[in-house]
Write a protein that binds this DNA or RNA. Structure first.
Lengths: 209, 209
DNA sequence: ATTTGTGAATTACTTCACAGCA
DNA sequence: TGCTGTGAAGTAATTCACAAAT
């Protein structure tokens, strides 16, 4: 099992979703052609990805769904609950927390922090908002390896550094600054303002899809 | 000015943000090397992108910031206000609306729709939530070409079709279903649940960045 | 001297085409 | 025969390296 290309990692959750549904319906095997129909990805790509993931099928038959699900969960570390810290309990942070707590079981926000003492002590669903002073301690205690940043741009950099310092290995950053993990963590930046602007390019009538 | 590659379009808003700041500070020209420092992109890539955008610099000098900003705004259609429809006023939709209304002036949500009659008539900031029955009429009246979908997965497909039918050309879809524009609109899917899961792969200690 | 604009090389990803196994 | 696994070909995006312009 060689290195998994970034593009294939992005597809991992797509496979997992479709395959989990199939498993629940009781299906046992599936061909790359059928998965292609269900995911919209090409069957060759699916076969290549599965080789990256270290999963082999049976020629003439297909892939074992249970085995696939297990392997994908393993790769994503979902076999044990993945705990996530959220920093920033403004509109966006609160919505992300509610959204996550409702839907997701495996990757779950278990700690929320905010700098604003008016918010500290209040709750989002059942989770109490904690002060920044508790960040490092709580992250270490819970063994948290993932975090979401939803703070204003001015404090994003220092928050990211504090998270990395506390041992976080992967960060989803929604604040409109391009952050990096200083070589110690993987950072994915999602700038909603920019996404909207980029979309405007296509609304202008230049392209279709 | 040939076709602009998708990868370059994604960088357009990055350039615009940095350059707008520079323009406000009164700067007049900038080299690709300096922009590289400010954006984290390579200077060659910046020069290539600017050629795609149809912007030429002066050798030995650099690029005219005012000219660049104007051209980028033009490409993104930001010279006139870009109006956006939001469908779905749940947690996520409401947060997106608040977030957008606070920050963004050029690309702006000007209409919010929800299926739930309990929400219809209520307000997000100053915007009244409208019933789905008004969708097509309002979109046509306002000449809206962009939309955000933040509804449950079960109704996402029909909402997308209704939007395209009403003349929307670009959609940002936050519901966890892969939508396409049926050849008539550009659709960008952002599945936050999947983003979080994919991130878990990197939290597992396999990679850095 | 400085910085652009670009053809060539490189890298990353996808699709094609088919050999090989159940 | 059916479907996998893979080398080869193709496509897209990035980086290199340098000639041309001011």
């Amino acid at each position: 099992m060689a290195r998994v290309p970034e593009a294939a990692v992005k597809r991992l959750p797509i496979y997992l979703r479709v395959l989990s549904d199939l498993a629940e319906e009781g299906a046992e095997v599936i061909s790359s052609a059928e998965l292609s129909r269900l995911t919209g990805l090409s069957s060759e790509q699916i076969r290549k990805d599965f080789v990256y993931f270290g999963v082999l099928g049976k020629r003439g038959v297909g892939y074992r769904i249970g085995h696939l699900c297990h392997r994908l969960r393993q790769l994503l570390g979902l076999e044990e609950e993945v705990r996530v810290a959220l920093v920033g309990a403004g509109n966006l942070g609160t919505a992300l927390a509610r959204y996550n707590l409702m839907r997701q079981k495996e990757v779950r926000i278990t700690a929320v922090f905010d700098r604003d003492w008016d918010k500290v002590g209040k709750k989002i669903e059942h989770l109490e908002i904690l002060p920044m002073e508790d960040l490092e301690r709580v992250i270490r205690e819970q063994g948290i390896k993932m975090a979401i940043i939803a703070v204003p741009p001015s404090s994003a950099r220092e928050v990211a550094d504090a998270l990395v310092e506390a041992g976080v290995k992967a960060i989803l950053n929604f604040s409109p600054v391009k952050l990096d993990g200083r070589g110690k963590a993987y950072v994915k930046n999602i700038d909603l303002t920019m996404e909207l602007e980029a979309l405007a390019f296509y609304a202008g009538g230049r392209e279709k899809g």
